[in-house]
Design a protein around this nucleic acid. Structure first.
Lengths: 212, 212
DNA sequence: TGCATAACCGACGCATGTGTCGGTTATTTC
DNA sequence: GAAATAACCGACACATGCGTCGGTTATGCA
C-alpha cells in the first residue's frame, strides 16, 4: 500500500503568499510571456486552478508581485540611508543599501529593473509608474548635491543624470550576479570611484591636462 | 472592377533584407515571445510561409537580426572614435558615437541592450557573447585611462566599472527615447559631467583643480 | 516561345497555454 | 457530529502560434 500523505490544507493567506513567492521566482527567471501558470502552480505546490482562486489573471498576478516587491525595495533602501552626513557619505550609503537589496533578493531586483514585457499596455503602465517614482525619489534625495553641481532639480537634464545613476548602479548589480564572490564593499567602492570621483581623477600621478 | 496590382515578385536577397528589417521593428517593439511571425510577415508585405523560405525558425531569425545589428553598431561606433586625442576627448567622442547610433537606429539599440529573452538557452548564448565582446572592446579602448586610475585592465573590478559605464550610458539613451527633443550634445554633456567629472565636483568654481 | 527556377501562398497538424466550471474533501464552527 | 465554508482539483473550451507541405505563378533564360 502507498503511504498517502494526509493532504494538508493551508489557509488562504498562506497559500497566497506562497504563490506570490513562486511567481516572483518564475517570472524573474523566464520573463512574463515565457512563464506558464502551470510552472508557478507547481512551484507553489498546488494546481493551476488554485492560482485563479487568488488572482483573476496572469497579468494581475505579475502586477501584484511587482508592486509588492517594489514596496519591499523602497522600505529596504529607505531604512538604511540617513538624511544626515556629507553628500559623499549619503551616496555611499545609498549604493550600499541597493547592493544589499540585490544581494538579499536577486529575483526581485531582476524583475523590477530588467526592462521587459513592455508590450502589454496595462503592465507597461505599472512598470512606468514604479520607474517614475523611483527616479523622483532618488532625485529628491540628491537634490541638494545636484543643485550644487549646477543641475537644477526641475531641469530635464537633471532627470537624465539621475537615470544614468540608477541604470549604471543596477548595471553593476547585474554584473555582480555573474561574479557573486566579489564582496559588496568592492562594488560600493567601484560605484563611488566612477560616479562620485569621476574618471578624470588621477590616482597618484601629477595633474591632468584638460583643454587645448 | 478592382485594379489588381500585377503582383510583383522580388529577388530573394531583397526580400530577405526586408524581412530582417521588419523583424527588427517588431521584435524591438514587442519582445521575442510576444511577437508572432504573422506580424513580421505582414510588416514585410508577405505571408508567414515566406519567412520560413528564408529562415528555419523564429529563433534563428532573431539571432540573425541580433548579430547583424550588432555588427552595424560596432561599425558605427568604430568609425567615429579616434585613437588619438586626450582621454577626455576620446570618451566624449565615444558617447557621441553611441548616442548617434541610438538616434539613427532606436530599434536596434533597444533590441541589443534591453535585457530580455534570456529564457531561451540558444538566444542567451548569443546575447551573452555580444555583451561580452562589447564589454571587452570598451575595456580595451579605455585600458590606458583606466590603468592610470589605478584600475588594472585584468582586474575583475575593472570589468565591473566598464559595465557600469555601458549600462549607465545606455540608461541615458533609454531616457532619451522618452524625451526626444533634448539635443544630443546635451546628453553627451550630461554623461561627461557624471562619468568623467564625477558628482563630487563643484559647479561654477573656475578651473577644476586636480593635484597640486 | 517554352522551360526551369524560385518566389510566393493557403491550409493543415500539433503543441502550448489561459481562464472557467462543477465537483470533491479537508477544516472550522456551532 | 453535522452543517457550512473554503481550499483544492480535473477536465473542458477556446485561442494563439509555430513549423510543414504541396501547389501556384511570376520571372529569367535559352
Amino acid at each position: 500500500m502507498e503511504v498517502r500523505e494526509p493532504k494538508r490544507r493551508v489557509p488562504g493567506s498562506v497559500r497566497r503568499a506562497r504563490i506570490i513567492e513562486a511567481a516572483l521566482s518564475v517570472f524573474a527567471a523566464r520573463g512574463y510571456h515565457a512563464t506558464a501558470m502551470e510552472e508557478i502552480a507547481t512551484s507553489a505546490g498546488v494546481t493551476r486552478s488554485v492560482l485563479y482562486d487568488h488572482f483573476p489573471s496572469k497579468r494581475v498576478l505579475l502586477i501584484t508581485v511587482l508592486q509588492e516587491q517594489n514596496a519591499l525595495l523602497v522600505e529596504h533602501v529607505g531604512a538604511r540611508i540617513t538624511g544626515s552626513g556629507s553628500p559623499g557619505h549619503r551616496l555611499r550609503a545609498t549604493f550600499d543599501a541597493y547592493f544589499s537589496f540585490a544581494e538579499d533578493r536577486p529575483e526581485a531586483r531582476c524583475l523590477l529593473f530588467d526592462r521587459t514585457d513592455e508590450d502589454d499596455a496595462e503592465i507597461k503602465v505599472v512598470r512606468w509608474g514604479i520607474r517614475e517614482t523611483r527616479t523622483r525619489a532618488v532625485a529628491a534625495m540628491l537634490a541638494r548635491d545636484l543643485s550644487r553641481l549646477g543641475l537644477d532639480p526641475g531641469a530635464l537634464i537633471t532627470e537624465a543624470v539621475v537615470e544614468l545613476l540608477i541604470t549604471g548602479t543596477d548595471g553593476l548589480a547585474q554584473w555582480w550576479t555573474r561574479h557573486p564572490d566579489v564582496p559588496r564593499a568592492d562594488l560600493v567602492e567601484a560605484a563611488m570611484r566612477v560616479l562620485w570621483t569621476g574618471l578624470s581623477q588621477l590616482p597618484l600621478g601629477p595633474a591632468v591636462h584638460v583643454g587645448k
